[in-house]
């Protein structure tokens, strides 16, 4: 049986365009899953993971258009790319309720550094991660490959 985290990673591979190894390599998968658990009503994360796993790939558009799953899906993308949680829209909260963790916030210092935005931009995490004097003249690993 596929674990929750595996389902979450499978979905995230689809949502981000990055590989399993890259996503797990950030060290943030469990923390992001926890962020979802803290905000969504009980059982809803598992429902979402099951729903997404049941869909054929390339149906992201359908998920994004869903009033229930669209905002959550967009938030997962932002989690991976920016390492931050974005408060869900009022229309979503009106239906599903509000939890204290559902506020705009950066998950952690590590998540900021682990953001895929840096990889995608071919940049080092600004002002955050030690890299050695003059490193700005060297392309980051992922950008170079």
């Amino acid at each position: 049986m596929t674990s929750r985290r595996d389902l979450f990673i499978d979905l995230s591979v689809e949502l981000t365009g990055y590989s399993r190894v890259q996503l797990l390599g950030t060290g943030m998968s469990e923390r992001y899953l926890q962020a979802l658990d803290e905000v969504l009503p009980d059982g809803m994360v598992d429902e979402f993971l099951a729903t997404s796993a049941a869909l054929p790939t390339m149906t992201i558009d359908a998920i994004l258009r869903s009033e229930t799953w669209g905002p959550v899906t967009r938030n997962i993308m932002i989690l991976w790319y920016c390492g931050r949680w974005t408060a869900l829209p009022d229309s979503w909260r009106a239906v599903h309720g509000t939890r204290p963790a559902d506020s705009n916030h950066v998950i952690s210092a590590d998540s900021y550094q682990a953001g895929l935005q840096w990889v995608a931009a071919g940049a080092h995490p600004a002002g955050a991660r030690q890299q050695g004097f003059g490193a700005w003249t060297v392309a980051p690993e992922e950008a170079a490959s």
Binding site: Q130, Q131, G132, G134
Partner: peptide
Amino acid sequence: VTEMFRLRDQMTRL
């Protein structure tokens, strides 16, 4: 030194 930080990132990914 720069190279060492790259090695660190490759290690943590694994």
